[in-house]
Structures are given as structure tokens and as C-alpha cells.
């Protein structure tokens, strides 16, 4: 099977300001956020990027979703190059992160229609999809309440629904359960599994082991911008191995190398 997402040897660096150098206790002007990273994700699977804060997970996801470009290497989504044809990639993906916000002034209903139009979704299809997504996430009762007046959980659910206006083949989700209450987190993880079963390709980034164990089919462990290991969750269960122990072994190994 051809991969839906193919990340091939990408590197991404950022220039550090003096203030950032102080915070990071380094004299280096350049920070390597992602270092020669490669992996693939396939239709009908949830691929997890597991790593601590600052490991490069979000940077990698932002590169895949065209918000930023890698310095070297290449990424393709459904055969479209992120670097050469970002508009085609944007049509294929739904990107969810706490960095992407909805305007407080508008209602979920207005914003759903707005983003549907921007994605070129047929109005009839859009209305049917809105009805289904809003009722799935319990937003229907709050459809006409301004985003700024919604509770944090409801706002995040609205963000999820709106990021899926165009029924994307690929869903990139940065820290999917961050800041969600247990009930909302369950709704979200169940929905991700449903989407996987529909044949969508899903990439999530997280630092929560239980989330990986619950929803991911494969997981890539990322430390200091480098992909250390890729594991099949099914194999872990079969071999009665513990993800957490494996992870900390890798962290220790990394610390030893450093």
C-alpha cells in the first residue's frame, strides 16, 4: 500500500533570539527542531508521534500541514509535495492544534459555513456535514453562541468540527486531548478511531502513553528532533512489552549518547 503521508529526511532549524538563547541555556544561534526525520503513515491507521515537550513533534506536524517549510528533505501528502504544491496538500488535510483558533466574535455555525466556502465544499454537502458533526460533538445547541462565549471544551469541539468541514483524507492532530475534560477527551478519541475505521490517515502527537496505547496503530518515538524508534502497538501487546519502559530506555540511551 502506498503511504498517504511520506516524510523523508526532513530537517527544520530555527534562529534563536538572545532571549531564547538565555532560556535554553545555549550559546548556539540555531536550534535544530527536527533532525533528519523520516516516517510514513498509511490510510486506515493512526500514527502517533510520542515525545517530551520540545522534541520536535509540533514542528514536524506544522511542516506536514504546510504552515512552515522544512529546510531540507521532502514531505508528500497523498502524492502532493508540501513544498511544491501546498494548496493541494491543504485540500487533503485537516490540522488541529491549540495554536489554531477560531474568532471569538463569530458563531460555530457562521464559521463552519465560512470555512466550507473557503474549502469549496458544495453548500448542500456542507449543510449535511454540519448537521452530522454538530450533533456528533453536541455543538448543535450552541451553534448560534459566539465562540468567545463557549466553554473551553465546547470551543475545542467546535474547532474539531470546523477543521473537518472538507472531510479531509488526512487528519493531523497535535496533542488531541490537551486541555479537554475526560468526557470530551473520550468523544474525541472515539471519533478519531471512527475516522481511522473509515480509512482516513491520522497522525497525532502526544506525550501521553495511555493515549498512544488506546488509539494508535503505530508510534514513532521522537527525542531531540530525531525519530528513535517506530513500534507497532499490536506487537507490544503480543510481546507483553511496556511502552513506558521502552520509552524511558530510549531516553536514557539518548542521555548517554549526549
Amino acid at each position: 500500500m502506498d503511504p498517504m503521508i511520506h516524510v523523508d529526511d526532513i530537517t527544520k532549524t530555527f534562529r534563536l533570539s538572545r532571549k531564547q538563547q538565555k532560556i535554553e541555556h545555549t550559546s548556539d544561534r540555531i536550534k535544530v527542531a527536527v533532525n533528519h526525520l523520516s516516517f510514513s503513515a498509511y490510510p486506515g491507521e493512526i500514527y502517533g508521534l510520542l515525545g517530551p515537550n520540545g522534541a520536535g513533534k509540533t514542528t514536524c506536524l506544522r511542516c506536514i500541514s504546510t504552515l512552515i517549510q522544512p529546510d531540507s528533505g521532502s514531505i508528500t501528502v497523498h502524492g502532493h509535495s508540501v513544498q511544491d504544491d501546498p494548496d493541494a496538500v491543504r485540500k487533503e488535510i485537516g490540522f488541529l492544534t491549540s495554536d489554531l483558533k477560531l474568532e471569538d466574535f463569530f458563531t460555530p455555525n457562521y464559521l463552519f459555513d465560512y470555512f466550507s466556502r473557503l474549502h469549496g465544499v458544495d453548500p448542500e454537502v456542507s449543510q449535511a456535514r454540519k448537521k452530522s458533526l454538530f450533533s456528533r460533538f453536541g455543538i448543535d445547541k450552541f451553534a448560534e453562541v459566539k465562540v468567545g462565549e463557549l466553554s473551553t471544551g465546547m470551543r475545542q469541539k467546535a474547532q474539531i468540527a470546523i477543521s473537518l468541514v472538507h472531510d479531509p483524507k488526512v487528519i493531523v492532530f497535535d496533542e488531541p486531548t490537551n486541555g479537554l475534560d475526560v468526557l470530551t477527551a473520550k468523544v474525541v478519541t472515539d471519533y478519531l478511531k471512527e475516522l481511522r475505521d473509515e480509512g482516513k490517515t491520522i497522525i497525532v502527537s502526544t506525550h501521553i502513553f495511555s493515549l498512544v496505547e488506546k488509539i494508535c496503530d503505530r508510534v514513532g518515538i521522537i527525542l531531540n528532533g530525531t525519530l528513535k524508534k517506530t513500534l507497532l502497538l499490536g506487537d507490544l501487546v503480543k510481546n507483553e512489552e511496556d511502552l513506558e519502559n521502552l520509552f524511558f530506555d530510549l531516553v536514557q540511551e539518548e542521555a548517554g549518547e549526549a
Binding site: 500541514s65 504552515l67 494548496d87 490540522f95 489554531l100 474568532e103 471569538d104
Partner: peptide
């Protein structure tokens, strides 16, 4: 304002030129 609040990024990941 949109940059500060992060709403412009939501717009920038749509396929709009």
C-alpha cells in the same frame, strides 16, 4: 489581531491562495 489570537493560521491552512 488575527495573528495575535492565532486565527490567521486557521485561515492559512485552507487551500485559499
Amino acid at each position: 489581531g488575527e495573528k495575535e489570537r492565532g486565527t490567521i493560521a486557521t485561515l492559512l491552512i485552507t487551500p485559499v491562495k
